Simulated scan of single mutants.
Amino acid sequence: MTKLNLYVVRHGQTYFNIYNKLQGWSNAPLTEKGIQGAVTTGQKLANIHFSAAYSSDTTRAQDTANIILKENNSAEGVTLITSPFIREQFYGSFEGDDMDVVWEKVGAPYNMHTFKELVENFSLAKIRELMKAADPRHDAENNTEYWQRVEQGFTLIANNPELHDNDNVLLISHGNTILSLLERYGDGKFDTRVRPDNGSVTKMELADGDLTIISYNQ
């Protein structure tokens, strides 16, 4: 059984983050704080030997990955692999909208008005279903669509023929995706109401297609 050590990093802060806009497949550049945060994360991981590096194909994830690799002491020869499978959840016609307005619309049928209320009453899987129903065009990913895509990202990593047992892999991901992984694979040990910080590191182990969460939001 091949076990891979995944260092899953949430991308650096973007302008959509500070503008409180939903940012799934849509994109916004890193802020200066986001760039510096990626540098700090890179310095924290500077002595980890990465055998491979992956990110979603959004520029915020790619830029974060490249900054971290630049700070790494042994990343020479590591080529960043990007994939749409690793993107954040797709929010359909709500992409780029004010988050507070969107969650009000999603929660309205249940007399809920904030994302906090929603996560205190529903799983993230259920919230995806509610969002697709609330999306006027119904383009937002439901839970099945989301996981069918994301699982292909982990299959891509697991099937890399150049990776060997106990290799370290850098993976630049997104806030709701990291929370969703915690919900699905964390065995209830982590509080999914606590969002990962931009630039934070969550350690996971990938073995035979199964994920184990080692630590969160470090």
Rank of each mutant, 00 (worst) to 15 (best):
E145G: 10
V102F: 02
V119N: 10
M112I: 04
G107L: 02
M112K: 13
G96Y: 03
S83D: 07
R128G: 03
N142R: 09
E88R: 03
L130F: 15
W103H: 06
N142A: 10
W103N: 05
W147F: 12
F85Q: 05
T144C: 02
F90N: 11
L156R: 12
T144V: 14
N121P: 01
M131K: 14
T79A: 12
L156C: 12
S83M: 00
E120R: 08
D139N: 10
P109E: 05
E141C: 02
V150E: 04
E117V: 07
E129R: 03
P84T: 08
F115L: 15
V106K: 08
I81E: 15
N111K: 15
R87I: 08
F154P: 03
T155H: 14
W147A: 09
A134Q: 07
L80C: 03
E104M: 12
N121Q: 14
I127W: 04
M131N: 11
D98I: 08
E151Y: 06
T114Q: 03
V102G: 04
D98N: 13
A134Y: 02
E129W: 11
D98H: 09
F122I: 03
G92Y: 05
A134S: 15
Q148R: 07
T79P: 09
T114H: 09
K116M: 10
K105D: 09
E95C: 03
V101M: 06
S83P: 01
K105T: 11
E141P: 02
P84D: 09
T114Y: 02
V150R: 01
N143G: 08
Q152T: 04
F115W: 14
R128K: 09
S83T: 01
R87G: 01
I86C: 03
E145P: 04
V102Y: 01
E117W: 11
E120Y: 06
N142W: 05
F115K: 06
K126G: 01
S123H: 07
P84M: 03
E95S: 03
A134P: 08
R128A: 05
V101K: 10
I81D: 00
E151D: 15
M112H: 12
E151H: 11
G153P: 02
S93H: 04
